[in-house]
Design a protein around this nucleic acid. Structure first.
Length: 588
RNA sequence: GGCCCUAUCGUCUAACGGCUAGGACGUAUCCCUUUCACGGAUAAAAUCAGAGUUCGAUUCUCUGUAGGGUCACCA
């Protein structure tokens, strides 16, 4: 609490200070003193330029994808600079917080591979020297600082009930309506009257200058009270702040006497908790959603009143989505994609989501990725300068799918098997069962046109796609949808179809090379009056019933129940002769 | 409504005040091909509007317009 600025003259300040016995009644519990706290949380010993960043989600059910985005950015910036990234659970809202959902937050960070240096771990234990990292466990710390603010006349108790606050707001609105009306009647030459803002400030702040006796009376009645910050700001004055992302900002000073300590729980509001925690925890850079910009003046005031140097701030534009014709922030209540865990549920590999988010943060990421296909995305250097250009991007699933396809296409068949199976166990029990029963077969299926291929297939964007891609290889799943094949085969006559199948079965040899195999197909095509290539057919379509592709399609549909599949030859190789024969003949 | 932020193809974005405004996703067409993908090629597609500064403005300034944020004992 050194270097406090003397913003008021002595006389004024004198009248603001409450008698000691009242302050003791306000804070009856024993509290640590600020000097002790400074010693308990010494400055961090870090190299020059190291950033200490944090993420502070509240445990209210699930982790928001925007929270993951901010966490990812914060974590990368900290670790790129040899700094520290920590997790703080912001559970000061006793009504909405559900302590058990802290686990969801920890799991979400873990899922997206965002390592936390300090704070809650998967085990449920906290690590780090600047804890506790859960705000509800730091109650005394906040109270201690609020108490010292009161001692210095920088904060005061307020006994207004919420009804009284509503009343004040109502009155302000009413008066303001009248002003608007009067202004409307004025000619253009006359100066309009100033409008009245709602809120607890200036003359509306009932308890700001209450006499000690009055306060004592309420205390005797045990009326619930909050502690409010005594703002010395003037709304007409501007504060200049340099934001890491938005650049120079000019904001009106805060003149509201905001609540810093709540009545029922004795816990602080976000504003106070932010200042206290980020001071003691040594945060150097606060990266948070840009919805906080408007409370920045308050936060700066708080830091000043506490005699502390504020951190640097970077306000991140939120990820948005389109609703009808308007953009809006992705909402926890309305949008399933807000839930960070949803991406795992539908089977996006977590690194796909991470890379998608990295690309939103720094659009140069995709160029880097293209130039460094195999590298770990941690080697990409995230910059604030690039992030500053991002302005509330719309979440684009199509793009996410593309990023994800690319990533999955680089995986080995075994990796896809392992991860796909892990997903299927929760998301597609039938597929999981088959995959587990036939692991080697499943892997060979997944390996079609994959490993060793210069350009592996890119047909899986999420594990939920797996069923459609490989389900048909497993007999029980295939058998279920066999009826649909008739329709797909309508393009060819029954006679040709039977002739083709019979001819094929007669000559099929598993040991044929692809060329040999294809020669036989062409042969069948020719004998049935089909062109042996698409080109010949195109040149003189009237001479043929169709082309070799049509013959292949017969087999394709009979074997897989689908018209679009990977290479037919490979499919047959993987399925094995017995299964091929069975599926081709059994149709009648 | 007050205050604040923002504005380039449908989407994400690139462009010391200076080449024909570039790339990616998506879309369309073509090539490759036993289907579908993959890959390759091509195309359509944008500087919100109006003033000003300037030899020259997507870039700087102003005004308007539009979108977003915020105005809690929620974070």
């Amino acid at each position: 609490m050194k270097e406090k600025k003397e913003t008021m003259n002595n006389q004024e300040q004198g009248s603001n200070i409450l008698p000691k016995h009242i302050i003791e009644k306000l804070f009856p519990n024993e509290l640590p003193n600020p000097e002790e706290l400074e010693k308990r949380y010494p400055p961090r010993n870090l190299p020059e330029g190291a950033m200490v960043t944090r993420v502070g989600p509240s445990p209210t059910g699930f982790m928001h994808i925007g929270g993951v985005y901010a966490a990812l950015i914060s974590e990368r910036l900290a670790h790129q600079s040899n700094g520290v990234f920590f997790l703080r659970i912001e559970d000061t809202d006793e009504i909405r917080s559900k302590p058990e959902t802290t686990e969801v937050i920890v799991k979400s960070l873990d899922l997206f591979d965002i390592p936390v240096d300090e704070g809650m771990e998967l085990s449920g234990e906290e690590k780090g020297k600047y804890g506790p990292y859960t705000q509800s466990a730091r109650k005394e710390i906040y109270q201690s600082l609020v108490k010292s603010l009161v001692e210095e006349g920088l904060a005061y108790p307020c006994f207004c009930s919420s009804e009284e606050i509503d009343e004040i707001t109502g009155q302000q609105t009413e008066e303001n309506d009248e002003i608007t009306k009067r202004n409307g009647e004025k000619s253009e030459k006359e100066d309009p009257e100033e409008s009245i803002r709602t809120g607890y400030y200036g003359k509306w702040a009932k308890w700001r200058d209450a006499l000690p006796e009055k306060i004592e009376k309420e205390l005797e009645k045990e009326t619930p009270f909050v502690i409010r910050f005594r703002s010395t700001g003037n709304f007409k004055n501007k504060v200049k702040v340099r934001d890491l992302l938005k650049g120079d900002l000019e904001l009106s000073e805060n003149d509201q006497d905001r609540v810093i300590l709540k009545s029922s729980s004795g816990l602080p509001t976000y504003h106070l908790a932010h200042a206290v925690d980020d001071h003691y925890m040594g945060t150097t850079d606060v990266l948070r959603g840009d919805e906080w910009i408007s409370s920045l003046p308050l936060h700066l005031q708080l830091f000043e009143s506490l005699g502390w140097k504020p951190p640097r701030y970077g306000h991140i534009a939120p990820i948005q989505k389109m609703e009808g014709t308007s953009k809006r922030k992705i909402s926890k209540r309305k949008d399933p994609e807000a839930n960070a865990m949803m991406y795992e549920e539908v089977g996006y590999p977590s690194e796909a989501v991470v890379e998608y988010l990295l690309n939103l943060a720094n659009s140069t990421f995709e160029n880097w990725r293209k130039a460094n296909p195999g590298k770990d995305n941690r080697e990409f250097e995230l910059t604030l300068a690039r992030l500053a250009n991002s302005n509330g991007p719309l979440f684009d699933f199509t793009k996410l799918n593309d990023v994800s396809k690319e990533i999955i296409s680089r995986m080995t068949a075994s990796e896809i098997y392992e991860r796909g199976l892990a997903w299927a166990k929760k998301g597609d029990a039938r597929l999981a069962e088959e995959m587990e029963k036939h692991p080697e077969y499943a892997k060979s299926v997944l390996n079609i046109e994959r490993e060793g291929e210069a350009r592996p297939r890119k047909d899986i964007s999420k594990w939920a796609d797996l069923a459609a891609e490989i389900g048909c290889f497993f007999d029980p799943i295939f058998d279920e949808k066999k009826e649909e094949t008739e329709e797909m085969l309508a393009f060819v006559s029954k006679e040709d179809r039977e002739a083709a199948v019979n001819a094929f079965i007669e000559t099929y040899d598993e040991n044929d090379t692809k060329d040999e195999w294809f020669e036989k197909i062409k042969d069948i095509a020719r004998k049935l009056g089909y062109a042996e290539g698409a080109k010949q057919y195109k040149l003189a379509p009237e001479k043929y019933k169709g082309q070799v592709g049509d013959i292949a399609k017969i087999f394709r549909v009979l074997l897989t129940g689908k018209t679009n599949t990977p290479d037919l030859y490979s499919i047959m190789q993987v399925m094995g002769k017995e299964r091929v024969q069975k599926r081709l003949t059994i149709t009648d």
